[in-house]
Simulated assay, not measured.
Amino acid sequence: MQEKLANICDEIQKKIYQETTVEFGEEFVKRWTNPNFVGRLETYTHMAKVKPSCGSVLEIYIVLEEDKIKEISFYTDGCGSDFVCAEVACELALGKTKDQALTLESKHILQVIPKLPLDKHGALYPPIKALQEALQKP
């Protein structure tokens, strides 16, 4: 019985991934299923917390050393689009100087995940806002 249930769950998960890949693209699913930047850093030099209009929370944690982003992570309780957009923003910011990171825009995230549906574009802005707020704090 447990094996049968496990097989059913596996089939449902495969279907979800297939449908998500069609709607959002392979790059989105890759970042959704294999994130590199999710989690709260225990030690950080900069942090910001924003509340997108959808009601979720997004936190960005940064370790800035010698004016470069050496480590960065995020936490969100939002949807998959919130999660993936924050993941991409962190990837784009890692290794950049503070000034370089401050020039990042939502269009840069969209270049990485171009199939993001139009009705999910609201998720592009909070990670950029959080990044800017974190880096502009003393």
Rank of each mutant, 00 (worst) to 15 (best):
M1F: 05
E3V: 04
E3M: 01
K4T: 09
K4N: 06
L5C: 02
L5A: 12
L5F: 11
A6S: 02
N7Y: 04
I8V: 07
I8N: 03
C9F: 03
C9Y: 02
C9Q: 01
D10P: 03
Q13F: 04
K14C: 01
K15P: 00
I16P: 06
I16M: 00
Q18H: 06
E19C: 08
T20F: 06
T20D: 01
T21L: 00
V22E: 13
F24I: 02
F24R: 02
G25L: 08
E26V: 10
E27W: 00
E27F: 03
F28C: 06
F28I: 04
F28Y: 10
F28P: 02
V29C: 02
V29M: 04
K30M: 12
W32G: 03
T33K: 08
N34W: 05
P35V: 13
N36Y: 13
N36I: 11
N36C: 12
N36R: 14
N36L: 14
N36H: 14
F37Q: 01
V38A: 13
G39S: 14
L41N: 10
L41A: 12
E42C: 07
E42F: 08
T43V: 14
T43N: 15
Y44G: 00
Y44N: 00
T45I: 03
T45N: 04
H46V: 07
H46D: 10
M47P: 03
A48R: 09
A48S: 15
A48D: 09
V50L: 09
V50P: 04
V50R: 05
K51P: 05
P52T: 02
P52Q: 00
S53Q: 13
S56I: 04
V57P: 02
L58Q: 06
E59M: 08
E59S: 09
I62S: 03
V63S: 10
L64T: 05
L64N: 03
E66I: 06
D67I: 10
I69D: 02
I69H: 00
K70I: 15
I72M: 11
S73G: 15
S73L: 00
F74R: 00
F74Q: 01
Y75M: 08
Y75N: 08
T76E: 01
C79V: 06
G80W: 04
D82H: 04
F83I: 05
V84C: 06
V84K: 03
C85F: 04
A86L: 05
A86M: 08
V88H: 01
L92K: 07
A93P: 04
A93G: 05
L94G: 09
G95N: 06
K96A: 12
T97H: 07
D99F: 11
D99G: 11
A101T: 15
L104R: 13
L110V: 10
Q111E: 15
V112Y: 13
P114Y: 10
K115M: 15
L116S: 06
L116F: 08
L116C: 11
P117W: 08
L118G: 12
L118D: 15
L118M: 14
D119N: 14
D119P: 01
H121N: 13
G122D: 13
A123S: 15
A123V: 09
Y125R: 12
Y125M: 14
Y125W: 11
P126A: 13
P127M: 08
P127G: 10
P127N: 11
I128R: 06
K129C: 00
A130E: 09
A130T: 11
Q132C: 11
E133P: 07
A134P: 07
Q136D: 12
Q136T: 15
Q136N: 15
K137E: 11
K137Y: 06
K137I: 03
P138W: 10
P138A: 12
